[in-house]
Write a protein that binds this DNA or RNA. Structure first.
Length: 502
RNA sequence: UCCCCGAUAGCUCAAUUGGUAGAGCGGGCGGCUGUUAACCGCCAGGUCGUAGGUUCGAGCCCUACUCGGGGAGCCA
């Protein structure tokens, strides 16, 4: 049976032919002697038109009452029709219900995020999650393709590890047969070993951080790709990063434009993502933050928010007045629904208005030496239409393995890549400290146990070379590309702080 | 860990300022041959998160707790 099924995505090659598709009821609109059932089969959506008389009355009655997400096979003639979702529809001649679905909990109307997460096993079938999954698939392939095509060798780094790459406070500890171990936070340290064997390597896998972060940009388990390159300097690694990011954006644009449109992604701004990206040093970035330009920028933004707020409030009061008048019940209901949407928009804009002066204050009081805060990153990122590399952060604020800048010992040769339009950090990377003595001193300075890092130090003892790399978070990149507000929607089964739902 | 907001029908939300709980969607029944989150009529559906308190009277006020959302710090 399965081999005889046609996938919805290939209906365009079967116009006027009779085919059978297998799928689930996405939407059903019975209308007397005519039923429209939109079927999804994982490859797309297809509207099936069922006319009474063309099939048996019993089947007609069964299809008429079929609930959302019932599974079936359905046979009919493929017609091109612009009125139909996807552009093609099936004029049905036969159907077979496989499993009737009754009281499917997710309805076409809006739902709260808590409800949807608790129903994640079903929510994955929704159009939005499906689109994100398709884009993620392209993204992951593009990531692999870029490195594979540019002389990188894939190295699978371990998930159980003994030493930390980042802050020890964010480690998940596990009991490894009675011995202490932890889940990997980065494959970088292991990858450096491999880079000195293969020259150019990358790893791609899940990463775990026990940060107590409850924000739209954090997960405790996320996927990260990390390239590591021998014989490279900071300008060199930046060039790789911008070519890499430009490539994956181009691939997604080429292969997933319909999905991006459905998701409401800003396709025009993604088309601008081509090398070169902007480059700022941390010191330049901090000067921008403290400048009048930034204050003006934020003030302009505040005015815009206030104008938006006024517009929303005006609309709300208009609708409220209309609702007081003598109008039909259905109009009352429509107004109520619009009011709910508008009030939620209003709350969002009010939060922005409230945060704006705080962000302005934080920016104006920015002190050299601190790490860039979330709002600082957002400001820098909003002021640019392409990704921005921020380089040369203060040494104290950064990880022990980053190479001290020979020209300014207070900073390291690192970089963050901020995605444009306020999205913020997507990549973090650096040139690694390749001097044995400097690395040893830094390990001691941090209070780490040298014996744990002996193998890592060995890399600086036997044929050390300048090398570096970066890590790109898959979910954050996906959120940026798709315009999704929260990265928990960018992985099928998100793991969030204190919460594993299924 | 800190700050703010919330919890009312299966779901999303109302309840005119403390006076007997409403609507849409979803479900059930009926109608409709071109629907697009279809539409029209009828029906069922509630111990207002939990525990106290104030009051003649609490969904609404107060206290504590639980759960959730947003933001901060930190990060990819």
């Amino acid at each position: 049976m399965l081999k005889d099924l046609t996938r919805i995505s290939s209906l365009k090659d079967n116009i006027d032919k009779t085919v059978t598709i297998g799928g689930w009821v996405y939407h059903s609109r019975p209308s007397g002697k005519l039923i429209f059932i939109v079927v999804r089969d994982g490859s797309g959506l297809c509207q099936c038109v069922i006319e009474k008389g063309k099939i048996s009355d019993d089947l007609f009655e069964q299809l008429k009452k079929l609930g959302t997400e019932s599974s079936l096979t359905i046979t009919g003639t493929v017609k091109k029709d612009d009125r139909s979702v996807g552009g093609y529809e099936l004029v049905v001649t036969d159907a077979k219900v496989i499993c009737e679905s009754v009281d499917y909990p997710i309805t076409p109307k809006s739902h709260g995020i808590d409800f949807l997460l608790k129903n994640r096993h079903l929510h994955l079938r929704s159009q939005r999650q499906w689109c994100i999954g398709k884009v993620r698939h392209t993204l992951v392939n593009a990531i692999r393709q870029f490195f594979n095509d540019n002389g990188f060798t894939l190295i699978d780094t371990p998930i159980f590890t003994g030493i930390a790459g980042e802050e020890a406070g964010s480690l998940f500890n596990v009991d490894y047969f009675g011995m202490p171990a932890c889940l990997t936070q980065t494959g970088q340290l292991h990858l450096e070993c491999a880079a000195l064997s293969f020259g150019r390597v990358y790893c791609f896998g899940p990463t775990f951080r026990a940060e107590k972060s409850k924000t739209r940009r954090h997960l405790t388990e996320f996927w990260m790709v990390e390239p590591e390159v021998a014989f490279v300097d900071l300008p060199g690694i930046l060039e790789i990063a911008e070519n890499f990011v430009s490539f994956i954006v181009k691939e997604v644009l080429e292969k997933n434009e319909p999905e991006l449109k459905t998701l409401g992604a800003d396709i025009e701004s993604l088309k601008k993502i081509t090398p070169p990206f902007y480059r700022l040093t941390y010191t330049q970035a901090s000067e921008i933050l403290k400048s009048q330009k930034t204050q003006d920028f934020l003030a302009a933004q505040l005015n815009e928010f206030k104008a938006q707020k006024e517009q929303i409030e005006k609309k709300i009061s208009e609708l409220e007045n209309e609702a007081k008048g003598q109008i039909k019940q259905w109009r009352q209901d429509k107004i109520a629904a619009e009011l709910i949407d508008l009030r939620s928009d209003l709350a969002e804009i009010e939060t922005k208005i409230e945060n704006n002066p705080k962000h302005a204050k934080l920016a104006s009081e920015f002190e050299w030496g601190k790490d860039l805060g979330g709002s600082d990153e957002t400001i820098i990122s909003l002021m640019h239409d392409k990704p921005v590399f921020v380089t040369h952060y203060p040494r104290e604020a950064k990880a022990f393995y980053m190479k001290q800048d020979p020209e300014n010992p207070k900073v390291v040769q690192n970089f963050d890549m901020l995605a444009p339009a306020g999205f913020g950090e997507v990549i973090g990377g650096s040139i690694r400290e390749d001097s044995y003595d400097k690395l040893l001193a830094k390990i001691n300075e941090q209070g780490y146990k040298v014996e744990n890092y002996q193998w890592y130090l060995d890399l600086r003892k036997y044929g050390s070379v300048p090398h570096g790399g970066f890590g790109l978070g898959v979910e954050r990149t996906l959120a940026w590309l798709t315009g999704e507000k929260h990265i928990r929607q960018c992985i099928a089964f998100p793991r969030m702080m204190d919460k594993i739902l299924i």
